[in-house]
Write a protein that binds this DNA or RNA. Structure first.
Lengths: 233, 233
DNA sequence: GATGATTTGTACGTATGTATA
DNA sequence: ATATACATACGTACAAATCAT
């Protein structure tokens, strides 16, 4: 990220030019992290003040967030962070499960020996985090594990699509890891996945990956049903 | 599209407000159609003049095109329409084939009787266009056929993703239809697909759809190899 | 390599449409 | 229902960087 000086309020200053890039990056972060919750109305002037910028670059950043599907711009009526209904969420997870399954299948058939080694190494280094039940660190390791699989597909466009999907589901994928015994289960599922991949069974790898993602989705949906019965949906 | 008066130069005027929306829509059209070829450098002032607008809405539209992956904005160095290398194109077709296969699988399992009827009707009404070898009309009918399958997945997010992919490959999907006997082949493949779908064989439907798309991709690649051996990657 | 021309990036002012009293 | 307040949409102006010469 093109930043230089962290400020007191958590804001950062871009190195030079392209304020809108910076604003976009920060806002995407904060929205996907959940720091700016769905339904929040964003005020252009306010954002400009916060980023020490005029409204022009703010507006340009907002257009990009809109194109990314994170916010809705209602002409002359303001900008609102899109609420994900439970249904939308479920649909997105379903598609994500299929895309990740696609990645697993391609990766099984195309990964180099080095890539296979990296995937296994990432998996094994996560074992300790599971034992410690270190959810945050496992979350990061998990992301790197999936990243490695994306890259092993040798399809940059697919990598891009998979990453975009993940960004949009980021806060939810985190949440589900905290439910039930998802960290342990996740690691065990990864183990099965690697076995299928190393023996070159791409169809089975796809099935396992799909199940893996749907398990995560189910855990999340049960959690949401328990905690937010009124909102979402 | 939110337009009112067609102008002589093909430009249109938006009803009021949200000029950037209008500019974005037109530019996306022209770029995907191929009217603005890859590598073209877009000039903000020039675009502003053309759309009778200042640079502000133009820039907002450009940010959206960037987020859509159609152009690249190089800070202080201008905007270029992204060239699709042959490799990129191949990767995009590969992903598209999988996504469409996913749609076929879901649609097989979830379509209502009405949706199944619609899909079959669209298919059969295209038969005449095949006989007439009316490529343009078949192209449109083909789009509606695939649309109907998207919708039958009952997953709006997936529909959205599939549509976005198609927009980006639009000119190429058209091109391939003009090659070899792709119109006839396409229709025959649709026929096989419908058979699998109507007998509820979702796995087979997915396989057929994947092949269908890869056949289109192959035809296109052969065409490009023949016509543009230097350009495109 | 320096200088002028061109173009981008940002700020700001004004008008218009929306919401509220 | 009308008016008032407010936020957005767009245009214009200026600054800074790139490029052409």
């Amino acid at each position: 990220m093109a930043v230089k000086t962290p400020e007191d309020d958590g804001t950062v200053q871009p190195e030079r030019g392209l304020l809108s890039e910076h604003i976009r990056a920060v806002l995407i972060d904060e929205i996907t992290i959940g720091q700016i919750p769905p339904g929040t109305v964003l005020d252009e002037a306010q954002l400009g003040e916060r980023f020490q910028a005029s409204r022009t670059p703010v507006r340009e950043a907002l257009r990009q967030l809109e194109a990314a599907g994170l916010i809705e711009i209602r002409p002359r009526r303001g900008v609102v962070v899109l609420p994900l209904t439970r249904r939308n969420l479920s649909e997105m997870f379903e598609v994500t499960a299929e895309v990740e399954a696609m990645c697993a299948r391609f990766a099984t058939n195309r990964m180099t020996a080095l890539e296979r080694y990296e995937i296994i190494a990432l998996h094994e280094s996560a074992a300790q985090l599971v034992e410690d039940n270190n959810v945050d660190k496992y979350d990061e390791a998990n992301a790197r594990f999936h990243d490695a699989i994306y890259r092993a597909t040798h399809n940059d466009f697919l990598v891009e699509q998979a990453l975009q999907l993940r960004v949009r589901l980021l806060p939810f994928r985190r949440t589900q890891l905290r439910q039930e015994h998802r960290v342990q289960a996740s690691h065990a599922e990864h183990n099965l996945l690697i076995r299928a991949m190393t023996r070159g069974d791409s169809a089975e790898a796809a099935v396992i990956m799909r199940e893996h993602m749907l398990n995560a989705s189910d855990a999340l949906m049960r959690f949401l049903a328990r905690t937010e019965p009124s909102d979402l949906g």
